[in-house]
Design a protein around this nucleic acid. Structure first.
Lengths: 193, 193
DNA sequence: CTCTGTGAAATTTTTCACAGCG
DNA sequence: CGCTGTGAAAAATTTCACAGAG
């Protein structure tokens, strides 16, 4: 393992990849085979080539403009989150209803009013809207995002919001993760993956 | 549907539950059958009874003491997060290394020093530790939590941390959620669930 | 020789469909 | 009757195992 890490970081066998991912080697090969033939028999997979191919498949080669709505603690945390950039996301707008917050700078961006949302989305081609407002305001913000033409919404508010069929919606529930942990704890099963 | 909502909120058929969850009715019945027999033939499921049973199965009847380590924006957001309580989690400690933050009040709790972690965990019987520190400090915090005897860890830092076999670890990666959204957007598939 | 790519087998998950309870 | 609970069928996923490429 050490020898490999030192001398041969350019290729990896399905066995090694399987170990890293905690799955079966055959599964790795089958999954990768759907991307096409990127392995070399008798050698393994070229790591660089593989990373590029997976990135392309996952949409990481695109640059997705993201708007964050709501700059409470969570919104701030998201705005400061290192690593969105590395994964192909660019935060292009910070929006809040609170007049006291509008105009405040936060890193490279200035907080803007929710009323300007339509113009912001159109001008900066926002693809993804992140809802980080209190539960009570979530549906209203979702409606506004949809009206502005945002195609995908990530909802952090602890409430159910509904959107039209053509808009993709995901909900992140921070309590759910804790719940999964406590479930494992209660059942004393080692965490899978 | 309206009549049901008005008059008959105490029971729901597998068909209705399936609609709400966006799955097949047979799956609902099969899944619920693993809990035992809680439905009434010809009628449906008693919603109240069902909620209680699921809560018990998921460990929501326990009260899980949670400690949050790191009170940057994310830590604050988690500390203020409404709804942990409703799901059986009680934040019993806020911990940070920053001497400037220690002693500060935040809602009902006071921020304490990481050095006091062992005593805090022991005294308040902390079951779950939440890591909300920068990536660079995550492993250190994880080690401390493990040493203090915490059995489950939820890691929000964008880095991989390793823990002993007997500790349950989960990682929440905020960028992953965006990635899933952009994947759907790219492939123009309606979101499942 | 080693390690991929892939049919075929095994296993798991989901759906069907219906006997029978209330 | 309506709707559950559940065997049996169908579909999807995972693993095996090996021919053959490099």
């Amino acid at each position: 393992m050490l020898e490999i890490a030192d001398q041969d970081v350019t290729t990896a066998s399905s066995e090694q990849l399987a170990e890293l991912a905690g799955v079966n080697a055959a599964k790795v090969r089958k999954d990768l085979s759907y991307l096409g033939t990127y392995g070399t028999r008798g050698v393994g997979y070229m790591v660089g080539e593989l990373v590029d191919e997976i990135a392309a498949e996952l949409g990481l080669t695109h640059d997705w403009p993201v708007a964050i709505v709501g700059l409470g603690n969570l919104g701030h945390a998201l705005a400061n989150y290192r690593g969105f950039g590395a994964r192909g996301f660019r935060v292009v707008a910070l929006v809040d209803t609170d007049a006291a917050k509008v105009g405040r700078r936060l890193g490279e961006l200035t907080i803007e009013s929710l009323d300007a949302l339509d113009a912001i989305v159109a001008a900066r081609d926002v693809a993804i809207g992140v809802i980080a407002v209190p539960a009570a305001a979530a549906q209203e913000v979702a409606d506004r995002l949809v009206a502005a033409g945002v195609g995908s919404i990530l909802n952090f508010a602890p409430t159910v919001v509904t959107v039209p069929e053509h808009v993709t919606l995901r909900k992140v529930d921070l309590a759910t993760e804790l719940q999964i942990l406590s479930f494992y704890q209660q059942h004393r099963t080692p965490t899978p993956v």
